[in-house]
Simulated assay, not measured.
Amino acid sequence: MRIIIADDHAVVRSGFMHILNYQEDMEVIATAADGLEAYELVAKHRPDVLLMDLSMPPGESGLIATGKIKEDFPETKIVILTMHDDDEYLFHVLKNGASGYVLKNAPDEELLKAIRVAHDDGTYIHPEMATSLVREFVKKGADSVETDPFKILSKREIEVLPLIAKGYGNKEIAEKLYISVKTVEAHKSKIMEKLQLKGRPELVQYALKKKLLNF
């Protein structure tokens, strides 16, 4: 199977490349440093599996990239590799189309198993986290859809919101996302309107509650 690795640390990419290329049924064909580069490489190579880090500052996050890649290249299976042992992260990456969720401190054998399961159209989640996933689905089922920012905000608004919460000004956000200041202002207005927030303090509180600050 043809694999692309996306991680913001070169030493991590090198290490996983060595592990995967040692397998008879796996070949790493490219590596990326953030979600945007991962998208471009998937578009170019159409790999069987993308091994994606969840958080890749200052580049595009794995969560945002996962949604974009699965929407445009659904045939590529995505396995998330992360340090976040957290129900919210797990829930959202699976909703965005990931086929696997593996912690970075997991044994090599678990990573290899996750890649093979995903390649065979399955979904791999560490057994301990599977219980958390069930609890999270039950919890989400009890909540209204409107409480989920990933349902009511656009992908660009999901990118803008944490930058606002972190205190960046309109000009700084515009430079980071390669958009105009006027566009940033429009996104801010839409975010506040959609989430029914009255000011930056409420927005910061919302971002913290929904664990959006890493994206």
Rank of each mutant, 00 (worst) to 15 (best):
D120M: 11
H84E: 14
S144N: 13
G62K: 05
K139E: 05
H126C: 10
F215Y: 12
A106S: 15
K44Q: 15
I64Y: 00
G67Y: 00
T123N: 07
D25N: 14
V79W: 09
Y168E: 04
E60V: 15
A98Y: 03
I80Y: 00
V160D: 01
L195M: 08
I5P: 02
K113Y: 10
M192R: 09
L111S: 01
K210E: 15
L163G: 04
M26W: 04
M52Y: 03
S61G: 13
A165Q: 05
H45C: 05
E175N: 12
L51T: 09
L212S: 04
T82N: 02
K70R: 14
L20V: 11
E202W: 09
A6R: 02
L54D: 02
L103D: 04
A118I: 02
R46L: 13
E175T: 06
L212C: 03
A6I: 00
D72S: 12
K77W: 00
G122P: 04
M192K: 13
F16V: 01
I173Y: 00
D48L: 07
K70F: 04
I115K: 05
E157H: 07
V49T: 08
H18Y: 10
M129Q: 14
D72L: 11
D121R: 13
E88S: 10
A30C: 06
G141K: 12
E27V: 10
V117R: 12
R13F: 07
I125W: 08
A33P: 00
V42C: 09
F150C: 01
V49R: 10
I179W: 02
Y39D: 00
E24T: 13
I78Q: 00
M17R: 15
E128W: 08
P162S: 06
D85N: 15
R2C: 01
V204E: 12
I78R: 04
A65C: 06
M192G: 03
I3M: 06
E110W: 05
A65G: 03
I64S: 02
H45T: 09
S14P: 00
I78P: 00
L51Y: 03
G100F: 01
H119T: 11
L63D: 03
I19C: 09
K70T: 14
I3D: 00
E60L: 13
A142E: 12
M17S: 13
H187S: 09
P107C: 10
F150W: 15
G169K: 12
N21G: 05
D53P: 04
S132V: 10
T82K: 04
G35W: 02
R13P: 02
P47N: 13
S99H: 11
G141D: 09
D34L: 06
E71T: 08
T183K: 14
H9M: 12
L36E: 14
P57H: 11
A165P: 00
D48C: 07
F91Q: 01
V93G: 02
E60R: 15
R46S: 11
M56C: 06
L51W: 04
G169R: 10
P149H: 13
N105I: 11
E71L: 10
R46Q: 14
L51K: 00
L177D: 07
L111T: 07
K155W: 09
P107I: 08
E128M: 11
A32S: 09
I125H: 08
G67W: 01
D53S: 07
L63K: 01
G169C: 06
A98W: 00
L54H: 01
D108H: 14
F91N: 06
K171A: 12
